[in-house]
Design a protein around this nucleic acid. Structure first.
Lengths: 239, 239
DNA sequence: CGGGATCCCAAGCGATACTG
DNA sequence: CAGTATCGCTTGGGATCCCG
């Protein structure tokens, strides 16, 4: 039985209400993955390796009761976000931006999921900078997962490559591969972090030239959550 | 002793890292209140009526360890956000916007806090719409708490009125009260929700005219998180 | 493969009492 | 007022078994 988030905060407040709905452990990570596209129960389980199956089951039930998630009628074990769930994108993106700069080095045992990576890139996407650049496809291989990222003007389309994605009527952008508009990179997770931070990063360029790499850096960027420019000499230091 | 959020998610992901830092119950509500200004232990306790004192104590310790919160050296029991903590504003604002439209009627026992209200207004603030309007002060009385809200061009300055605020060197905006630029409203929490949603709302106008009320509605607005338009998946647009 | 049920332990949470 | 200490309840987590 769903654990019922009956423990409210006793406040008539948007933040409190939101946390009552999606504040439980694991809940927003499930939403994050579903923001990339519909997923099956097993996909989510694989994407969230440490989640116990009963918790995943409970959360999916609660998220359905909250109107955030619904089942995909045509697919056994398929789940997708409702409109209300899709509206959580700004929340997840804001969290992703904040947490990204807090990523130190990967801890032993940390995994990198394709969906998580897709959201990172969505959070890093600079629509204004991209608008002036020619259509480009980026293919990223990061720590075992692969993503195809198509930037067409100010629009962004990310599709994980390989198994896990649930086939959907969702069309790719009207993008026809332009010769010389493909950058393919292979890098480690912490190198991607450095790259998005604008720092020098070790990356293996499998296809494309330096100009395309520059284009990538212009298009995708997550600055530090707390810029060092602060008048008061804060004692705290990010570890 | 701080309970240590050692239970990580095992993912090298911004969202996961963020939730490990500020995903614990009550944590973001504490951050929300501190976003309005430095507060004392007792202020927070009063603002979050249902929080057990040991949990408040634990969370403040954890938030300090996470570099989000620090003590105000000059004030006994005073806490404030660090730069990193201030950087959580987009997260809280996004949550507030999403949760606001999920506020039904107040549940018996729900309280309304001045700080929570201040964040609601910050989330509802339309800088672009406000930029074209003359400087205005709004004084709101909502369910027992009062706020002074000064809009000066595209800037917003909110100060709770009454006890609870910790005196700070923070200056009010360079705002000199203009005669005829003050709207004072008294309303119930659910009426404010309707007002910000753009619906008709029962409000008692204590000072000001209809034109000022119209100005308020233009300046502050939180639309539904899930607009009734289902079909369009809406490519994300930077606001 | 999807997903529900159970058992068990550990950790988180909540209420209250207590101390500086 | 600003916490700490304690205690009992609830939840999460891991493992496992089960059913369709």
């Amino acid at each position: 039985m769903a654990t019922r988030a009956a423990r409210g905060y006793g406040q008539y407040s948007g933040t409190a209400r939101a946390l009552e709905r999606i504040g439980d452990r694991w809940a927003l990570l499930i939403v994050r993955d579903l923001l990339v596209g519909p997923r099956r129960y097993g996909d989510l389980k694989a994407s969230l390796p440490r989640i116990p199956t009963n918790i995943l089951s409970d959360r999916l039930k609660e998220l359905q009761e909250a109107g955030v998630v619904r089942r995909v009628p045509t697919v056994r074990g398929g789940y997708e976000l409702t409109r209300l769930g899709l509206a959580l994108e700004p929340v997840v993106v804001a969290l992703e931006r904040w947490g990204w700069s807090e990523l130190g080095e990967p801890v032993e045992g940390d995994t990198v999921g394709a969906d998580a990576l897709a959201i990172s890139l969505r959070a890093a996407f600079r629509a204004d900078a991209a608008a002036g650049l020619p259509p480009t496809e980026y293919v990223l291989h990061v720590g075992g997962v692969s993503l195809s990222v198509i930037v067409l003007g100010a629009t962004l389309d990310i599709v994980p490559i390989g198994p896990g994605a649930l086939p959907q009527p969702r069309r790719r952008s009207a993008f026809e591969p332009v010769p010389g508009a493909l950058l393919e990179l292979a890098l480690e997770p912490d190198s991607l972090r450095d790259l998005l931070a604008g720092d020098a990063a070790r990356a293996t360029v499998l296809a494309g030239d330096d100009e395309l790499l520059e284009r990538f850096v212009l298009t995708f960027r997550i600055g530090p959550a707390a810029p060092p420019t602060e008048r008061a000499p804060a004692a705290d230091a990010a570890a």
